[in-house]
């Protein structure tokens, strides 16, 4: 379980996150929603150690994530995707996913150069993982394409696939549906809902597409101006007056 308590983050005078509490239970999809500028991506960047918060704690299964360096998070089981897709764009799709699995390998420079059995075993396992994820996300036919040549929607899928290949027990998805066509969003929603069962990972989903979020998540946290204004199951959130006022619009 991920537990975030009293999180505060300011940039200069701007309070991006202002005392946020929420939890992501194991084996579920939890959504963090809010209008643009509500502080969602800031939360994700704190969780993945790109930003250092001024106050608060982030504990995942007993590990204090705020004490880890960014590249150690994936070892603690936390994988993430990026809002503006940060793919390894010169590499083919398959290699992007393989990098996700590479932290599981134990072979160093020498053994890799000599391609020892250990190095080859890692390659084989990484490939198997990547194949499974590509099949799950229906991007197998993109395998040899250069990541930078793909459409934005496909790049988002590769980004998500790379995070999934890293074998997380907690997957942080930053607006996975942005840039996708309507029909593709519905499909993606179903895919995300299957992640806990298929890969044993809980998901923290950040998006502002209400349709996607409410259809997929077991619970929803709503942010506005850095604060949590509502939390609960999708139906409760949909009826919450503050949420309607702040976010859904009054109609």
């Amino acid at each position: 379980m991920l537990e975030v308590r009293g999180l505060k983050l300011a940039f200069g005078g701007v309070q991006a996150i202002d005392g946020l509490d929420f939890t992501v239970p194991d084996g579920t999809v939890t959504a963090l929603i809010g209008a643009n500028g509500a502080g969602k991506t800031s939360v994700l960047n704190v969780l993945s150690r790109f930003y250092q918060p001024q106050a608060g704690t982030v504990v995942y299964n007993g590990t204090d994530l705020l004490r880890l360096r960014a590249h150690k998070l994936v070892h603690a089981g936390v994988g993430r995707s990026f809002q503006n897709v940060a793919l390894f764009q010169e590499l083919p799709v398959l290699d992007n996913l393989l990098v996700g699995a590479d932290h599981l390998g134990r072979t160093g420079l020498l053994r890799n150069t000599l391609r020892t059995p250990g190095a080859r075993r890692h390659e084989r396992r990484a490939r198997e993982r990547a194949e499974r994820v590509m099949e799950f996300l229906e991007i197998t036919d993109l395998r040899h394409r250069r990541a930078g040549d793909l459409s934005f929607g496909d790049r988002k899928l590769v980004d998500m696939g790379r995070a999934l290949t890293s074998g997380p027990s907690l997957l942080l998805l930053d607006e996975p549906a942005s840039g996708m066509a309507e029909s593709q969003r519905d499909w993606l929603g179903q895919v995300i809902r299957r992640i806990p069962d298929e890969f044993g990972a809980s998901v923290l989903l950040i998006d502002h597409d209400m349709g996607l979020v409410l259809g997929v998540s077991a619970s929803v946290v709503v942010m506005d101006f850095g604060r949590k204004i509502a939390e609960g199951d999708p139906d409760a959130v949909r009826r919450d007056e503050r949420v309607i006022a702040a976010y859904l619009g009054e109609d």
């Binding site: 790109f50 590249h71 998070l73 994936v74 990026f82 996700g100």
Partner: peptide, 9 residues
């Protein structure tokens, strides 16, 4: 950034 997120030092 993405490399770090994938566990690369």
């Amino acid at each position: 950034q993405a490399a770090a997120a994938m566990g690369i030092n």
